[in-house]
Write a protein that binds this DNA or RNA. Structure first.
Lengths: 192, 192
DNA sequence: CTCCCTTGTCTAGCGCTGCTAGAATCGTGG
DNA sequence: CCACGATTCTAGCAGCGCTAGACAAGGGAG
């Protein structure tokens, strides 16, 4: 039975290769450049091999998004854990979130902008997505303020960060004053 | 010379028809369904005619976006003008903005999500886009708070609205509590 | 060791996309 | 009424996501 196991290992490795390659290509040249032909060529297999791992391009984007969501959650938790006091914790969280979006634009797009066939804000929402929201909630609940539902506060705070991230990335906001915007946002939204 | 004038009129009318049709098709079935073939068929001309008006699909999206930005600016101004007091003015502005995004999702996408080849936050930014920002600024400056640059405040407020709009539309936020989120956002950000 | 058969991979192709060159047609001024 | 210039159309290119069916490779049985 060792033969079967080896094949399964190889298959899993190839799946990781596909995702890593898709992500790399997307970060280098944007998701539009991630065509099934180019992706197949880079992993040195033919196109149909991709379809033996994923239902289609959208599912590949979705898989990259889930990876990214886990990383985003980790980045947020690490940043928040390294800060003293509620105010600084929230500011650190905000900076970490925006830094992730700036450093991994393609992955951020996969999570929040593109259609990766993922369900959100529902019961069947994949675990990494729920966990990313949880990572925000954990650190934001303490500054939601009296009588304000922590979940609702987290949604609003998250939406604001998302707006800053996307508008900055799309060139809609000049990137120079990002820190000023974070200061303003945290100062106003967080109740310390 | 009346012949030439008539031709120019006809041409301008056809250009409006193209844009109206593109917009209608996008709102009905999404921008993915707006292909040059379908668009040409709907206006009862062949594909190349589109290219005698616009450089390509992206420019059509951009033109729809400019139309939409003007409407968004008008909607914001009307809503704000009809409200009493700074606090209510800002709340009305926020609701009007989100309502526009919800009622014209394809147009909102054209303005802020898709690549319409438009320049933002620069000198050569098209007038309607500058004006839409100005419409926000006009009504938000009074609640920016002491020592806070109105432009910066407007950017942050706008980003928050944009985040709420896009996340709600993409199913990332449950639409039920939109009003609660607006209340929270306005209550915290606006200094009255 | 050889043969068969399953499993996995590839070649080739479908219908679609945005876009364009060159043919054909239309309408106007002489 | 005709010729010419502007306008519009037909037809086609390269590339897209995706898939059917041909083909090859490699393990298990005899």
């Amino acid at each position: 039975m060792s033969v079967k196991e080896r094949k399964e290992r190889d298959r899993a490795a190839r799946e990781r290769l596909i995702l890593a390659t898709a992500r790399e290509l997307a970060e280098q040249q944007g998701w539009d450049a991630v065509t099934t032909r180019r992706l197949a060529e880079r992993i040195e297999y033919s196109q149909p091999v991709l379809y033996s791992h994923f239902r289609g391009k959208r599912e590949i984007i979705g898989a990259v998004a889930l990876e990214g969501a886990a990383e985003l959650a980790a980045a947020v938790r690490i940043a928040a854990a390294g800060a003293e006091g509620p105010r600084e914790r929230v500011a650190a969280l905000a900076r970490a979130y925006l830094a992730f979006a700036e450093r991994n634009p393609a992955v951020y797009d996969a999570i929040f902008q593109l259609d990766g066939g993922l369900a959100f804000a529902r019961e069947d929402t994949p675990e990494p997505l729920k966990d990313a929201f949880a990572a925000l909630l954990e650190n934001l609940a303490e500054v939601a303020g009296d009588g304000v539902h922590p979940g609702l506060f987290t949604e609003v705070f998250w939406a604001s960060l998302h707006g800053l991230a996307t508008l900055t990335r799309a060139g809609r906001l000049p990137p120079a004053e990002t820190e000023s915007r974070v200061q303003l946002l945290v100062g106003r939204l967080a109740v310390v």
